[in-house]
């Protein structure tokens, strides 16, 4: 699908040469880690740290991830809860750290943002999309962030405007830009369609 330049593109995780590995996933993103594990050298997980946010997948992936025997394993309820840990991990990390992000765009974007802020080189980060295409959206009018947007248009959870969710993506905010869809005539209310699944 051809779209605008800022729309992130994701790849496929594969084990990289490195001294330590930080793997972060939410929900179905866990399966990307499990797939990477099939290709990884034997001692890979001895220097690995897995951070997992199960979300809608409940407890279906935990055991498989723990069975990889990572040096450290963390599980948290949300991206927001995991971020302070990530910041702390990165503050103490050294060059040679490789990062692997898998799952929803919201997770990938926010973790990436924190990582770049910590000074990690983008070339050290791999990403793979799995699971929901729900978007993290920033309202360009009130600047409020709405998580898990699945419809087009979508209502801003802060100011209530009806927003067109654009492919225009801000790395700095780790969010897609939402622009008022009926500014000319607020009485015109286009039908919402569930498209980001």
């Amino acid at each position: 699908m051809k779209t605008i330049l800022s729309r992130p593109v994701y790849g496929t995780l594969s084990p990289q040469a490195g001294k330590s590995h930080l793997l972060i996933a939410d929900a179905e993103g866990a399966s990307a880690i499990l797939d990477l594990a099939k290709k990884a050298p034997e001692d890979f997980f001895a220097n690995a740290h897995i951070m997992f946010i199960p979300g809608r997948t409940g407890d279906s992936f935990q055991n498989a991830l723990k069975a990889l025997k990572p040096a450290q394993y963390y599980e948290g309820p949300s991206v927001a809860a995991a971020l302070p840990r990530l910041t702390w991990v990165l503050a103490n990390a050294h060059m040679g750290l490789r990062m692997y992000l898998a799952g929803t765009e919201g997770l990938i974007g926010q973790m990436m943002q924190a990582a770049l802020e910590a000074g990690i080189d983008p070339a050290s980060i791999q990403t793979e999309h799995r699971g929901s295409w729900a978007r993290r959206m920033q309202c360009v009018h009130c600047k409020g962030i709405t998580e898990n947007v699945t419809t087009q248009p979508a209502t801003c959870s802060h100011c209530g405007l009806l927003l067109l969710v654009r492919d225009h993506y801000s790395k700095r905010h780790a969010a897609f830009q939402g622009v008022c869809i009926n500014a000319e005539d607020p009485t015109e209310i286009p039908q919402k369609e569930e498209i980001f699944r």
Binding site: Q16, A17, G18, K19, S20, M95, G96, L97, R98, D121, P122, A123, S124
Partner: peptide, 9 residues
């Protein structure tokens, strides 16, 4: 490279 430094660095 063996230590995992990206080429860009």
């Amino acid at each position: 490279a063996a230590h995992g430094w990206p080429d860009d660095a």
